[in-house]
């Protein structure tokens, strides 16, 4: 009897914990929405700040939205250019379970675990080393470093479980490793899209990386060497302003960022569902 009671007690506790996590999510979304919805006007998304982002009462955060999109797209594209070859190398070109493949996987797990503030500090060092100023370019390079391990891990997970026989089928027709790679890429398209979305979500929300490297301005950058505003920093800086209108811009920015991230998450879910359907 005591045995049953103990089990019932812990089971109840477990269910409470599980539900409370969903509860916290709902609470966060509710707080962000209720605070941000009132300030989310057309001006916010269509105008750059008027009279300085920290003190000016008018205008919006278009500069931050555009800046974030630039950096995120740039970093994801650069990231893909590096991570796809890496994933192909460890899954197609290198021998199965080779030393290099295992080391690469371990390293990208470790790089994935490094906090973005470390990437930010490192990005700042290379920026100084190459004589760059805080700019769209420096921000993009730093965020690229941040997303490479995310992309490698996510894509590797998909490529690794593709049945060996698909590769063997191509080899047995006299295909080369590069030809096999092309077939595998085709097979893994939904997985690659999921990885891209994952990296997109992480890149657009990260503040510590761009804090030292992208700078912050009121205008929309027109070239790579100009500094740029970003959404996370728009929230961070404007929230600390004493002026209520500016704070409200921060809440609106928080809501916009949350919506973007949620849309990305749901799209990624859709594609990963597709992925499991396509599995042979």
């Amino acid at each position: 009897m005591k045995r049953k009671l103990e089990e019932q007690f812990f089971k109840l506790l477990m269910i409470l914990c599980t539900l409370s996590i969903s509860g916290v999510l709902i609470m966060i979304l509710w707080t962000i929405t209720s605070k941000g919805a009132g300030s989310l006007t057309w001006d916010i998304v269509s105008k750059i700040p008027e009279g300085g982002f920290y003190i000016g009462k008018g205008g919006g955060i278009l500069n931050a939205i555009i800046g974030s999109i630039y950096i995120t797209i740039g970093a994801t594209v650069f990231g893909l250019l590096i991570s796809i070859p890496v994933v192909l190398y460890i899954n197609v070109y290198a021998k199965k379970n080779s030393w290099l493949a295992t080391t690469t996987r371990l390293t990208s797990d470790i790089l994935f675990g490094l906090p973005s503030i470390v990437y930010g500090a490192f990005g700042f060092t290379i920026m100084i080393y190459f004589g760059l100023k805080t700019s769209l370019l420096a921000g993009t390079i730093t965020v690229t470093l941040l997303v490479i391990p995310i992309l490698v891990r996510a894509m590797d997970e998909v490529f690794r479980v593709v049945p060996e026989d698909i590769g063997n089928a191509v080899y047995s027709l006299g295909g080369t490793r590069w030809e096999t790679s092309k077939i595998l890429i085709r097979q893994c398209v939904p997985g690659i899209i999921t990885a891209i979305l994952l990296s997109f979500g992480r890149a657009i929300g990260d503040a510590a990386c761009v804090l030292f490297t992208a700078g912050y301005t009121d205008s929309i950058p027109t070239s790579l060497d100009q500094p740029t505003a970003t959404l996370p920093l728009a929230i961070f800086f404007q929230l600390s302003s004493p002026i209520e209108e500016v704070q409200n811009r921060a809440y609106a920015a928080a809501l916009i960022l949350t919506i973007i991230v949620l849309v990305i998450s749901f799209t990624a879910k859709y594609f990963s569902k597709k992925l499991s359907k396509n599995k042979i």
Binding site: T18, I21, S22, V24, L25, M27, I28, T31, I32, K35, G201, I204, G205, D206, A207, A208, P232, I235, F236, L239, A250, Y251, A254, L257, T258, V261, L262, I264, S265, K269
Partner: peptide
């Protein structure tokens, strides 16, 4: 039903947690 909220939670940017922390 219960796994997606955990996933979503892990996707929310730190700065949003910060805002929520300040407010709540």
């Amino acid at each position: 039903v219960l796994l997606p909220p955990i996933d979503l939670l892990s996707g929310i940017p730190p700065v949003i947690y910060g805002v929520w922390g300040v407010l709540v």
